[in-house]
Amino acid sequence: MIQDEQIEFGGSAAAIRHHYDVGNDFYSAWLDPSMTYSSAMWDGLPKDAPLEEAQQRKLDYHAESVGAGEGMRILDVGCGWGGMMRNLRRRHGAAECVGLTLSEEQLAYIEQSGDPGIGAVLSNWHDYRPDRPFDAIISVGAFEHFAHPQQSVDERRGVYREFFQACRDWMEGKGRLSLQTIAYGRMSPEDANPFIANEIFPAAELPTLEDIVVACKGLFRVERLRDDGLDYARTCEMWSNRLRGAVRSGVVDPAIHPVEKYSRYLRMSAAGFRMRKIGLLRIAFATE
């Protein structure tokens, strides 16, 4: 959820390649098999349901939020390793999925899948101009990175509004958008502690719920809203434990990968969610 952006914004091209050459294996050692790098969802599942099942639940939740079905063409903004698109194709009958990512390695990973109904584009959503409209849009774990700490509240809201406007346009004014993002909770942007600001979200600023409500006004109606911060706490704790297990079994070598650092970030994020300093918003939007 965190580190790849730091590399993308801060690193040289060589550093990015170095990171991702070992990256896919590193991530696959502790993410679930769908390679989902965002919060899972335990709503409706037993409290002790495994990560894999809760990630599947999350993927289906967003698919259902946009009414995914036969023949639809669906865009995934910030598609990661493509798990959402694979699920939309396999379980919801989507005809065509397009994913946007900033990572070349993720692009290559998705292209390997060999499903002609799945495409990935290396593009910032801001510059993206699809040749055909979409029926629905999903964005999970990317919105966190759209605004920057140097921007004023109004500027940030302006960027979010551009995003909502773009989504509306890509659907020609008619369709649903399902968004999942971390947001400020009890903690406001003003008293963000240096840990969150510098270590966890470098070059990125989290939205508040208010930012989102203001930014989408007149473009989208909020159809459904949940704050599932504890889901993310549990996800981070499970990732951290899996990472520890991967080290113990020799799959991950702490001499090569910054295991301690990751594990600490993951647990601190979990603590932030448990203390409700930050929350996890899941919002279903509709144009009409």
């Binding site: 502690n193 840990f195 706490a233 704790e237 951290s240 434990n241 520890r244 113990r248 600490r264 647990r267 601190m268 979990a270 603590a271 932030g272 448990r274 203390m275 300093k277």
Partner: peptide
């Protein structure tokens, strides 16, 4: 704050010599 809370947890785990993490909850 969360950073100090996690340090506390990690120190506690080290003191107890645990092979696995304690659930934060």
């Amino acid at each position: 704050d969360s950073a100090k809370a996690i340090s506390l947890m990690v120190e506690l785990e080290n003191w107890l010599n645990l092979p696995d993490e304690l659930p934060l909850e």
